[in-house]
Amino acid sequence: MSFPEDRPPEAANTAEAALEELRRQNAELIEAVAARDTFIAVAAHELRNPMTPIVGQIDLLLAALQAGRYSSGQVEHRVRRIRRAMDHFIKRAGTLLDVSRITSGRFQLALAPCDLSDLVRETVETFTETARYSGCSFRIEVPESLPGAWDRLALEQILDNLISNAIKYAPSRPVTVSAEDFGSLVRLRVRDYGPGISAGDRARIFERFERAVGANERRSGFGVGLWVVGQLVAAMEGTIVVNDAQGGGSVFTVTLPRYSETNRS
């Protein structure tokens, strides 16, 4: 019969090392499960919020229609608000889906011809009502046309997150969105005139769950928004940096390769 203490020292060392490795893997799994649970809590929280205006506006519309109180113009106004609330919900769900695709390694770029100047103008347009509510105004600085091939949905997601943050954290101030042509590269910038971001926060804001849920978490918005932006930029072989802007505020600069449909390996 053989007892553990009878094993040669090298075998005991190997067993101890294997046990240590198992402990380490177990700790990692516990951490991963906790992170997943936190993310589910964030997602549930953030997907519940936009349901209030959707359900509420439908209730209002139904009540008014049943009472015969609405003109066709009022019905259209209410339906437009429902539509906007639905768009907001779809954007948040899209962020959640991106997180899932990125973390599971299933994210793939879908390159297609796209005009970056048009995309900037169209994305900014979707924020018209939100910006009006927050007292923000937009300045768009783009060339007449900036054609290339990019993953349009990923670009929209990047711009959407950066513009949304600018409005949220710098209300009642202007927001400048610009795109520049550098030949084989393009540069997107979103600049706000808010309080700026401290050096410590600048180093952490692209981390996942930086602003995730918790009893002390008090800010709204997906805690993974900038993490998703960072991941999408990296997937497009680009870079993103945030700096203090001259004259106050922050400027997010995204530099991307200007693909054509044929030069993507």
Binding site: N49, P50, T52, P53, G56, R84, H88, T130, Y133, S134
Partner: peptide, 13 residues
């Protein structure tokens, strides 16, 4: 409220 949808809903009601 920073969510325009919530503010508009309460406003309408």
């Amino acid at each position: 409220d920073d969510e325009i949808g919530i503010a508009e809903l309460i406003d309408a009601v």
